[in-house]
């Protein structure tokens, strides 16, 4: 049952990704991206990462993608897009490189991890325990606010800098 759902989500995620790459219009790409992100949220759920699935939908599919959409609207790229995907030698080479990457990564990273069916792996057991203790959000918040509190705060600063930077860059008539 879980496996079937996984394959469905994986297929839609890949289909969405393919759509992002091949879609002629930026808006089309964007919508395909949303599909892909949503499917990946499903994959996250299946991998027992419920909190990440939630923020994947809220932050990624919701906030960031809307930001992209706004920019596309702002630049008025919705209709008179250029046909920018040219099929040629460079595309073939790129495909070969990307294919090679996929092959090597799939073979080496995705190799057999020898987990028997129905057995929860060690990391999964720890996560399950943490979730039982603190709840889905608490399980990830606990290390975030203890072990990784400094990176967390720095991330906050990074976001602040990004906001200021975005304002400075996008502002008209910097005098």
């Amino acid at each position: 049952m879980v496996e079937i759902f996984f394959y469905i989500f994986a297929a839609t995620a890949l289909g969405g990704g393919l759509g992002v790459v091949l879609s002629k219009s930026p808006v089309g790409s964007l919508l395909m991206m949303v599909v892909s992100l949503a499917s990946l949220a499903g994959v996250f759920v299946l991998l027992e990462a419920h909190f990440l699935a939630a923020i994947q939908v809220i932050v990624y599919a919701g906030a960031i993608m809307v930001l992209f959409l706004f920019v596309i609207m702002l630049l008025n790229l919705g209709h008179d897009y250029q046909q920018d995907l040219k099929w040629g030698a460079f595309s073939v080479l790129s495909f070969a490189v990307a294919g090679g990457l996929a092959g090597i990564l799939a073979r080496e990273v995705g190799g057999d991890w020898q987990i028997a069916d129905g057995v929860v792996p060690p990391g999964g057991r720890a996560i399950d325990a943490a979730v039982r203790e603190h709840g889905a959000v608490g399980a990830i918040a606990e290390p975030l606010f203890t072990t990784y509190v400094v990176p967390f705060e720095i991330t906050g600063i990074l976001l602040l800098v990004a906001i200021v930077g975005a304002l400075a860059l996008a502002k008209r008539n910097v005098s």
């Binding site: 994986a10 890949l14 996929a102 799939a106 995705g110």
Partner: peptide, 12 residues
């Protein structure tokens, strides 16, 4: 399977 999905998605 998830890792293979990740690899293909990355290549894509």
């Amino acid at each position: 399977q998830a890792l293979i999905l990740s690899a293909i998605l990355f290549a894509l």
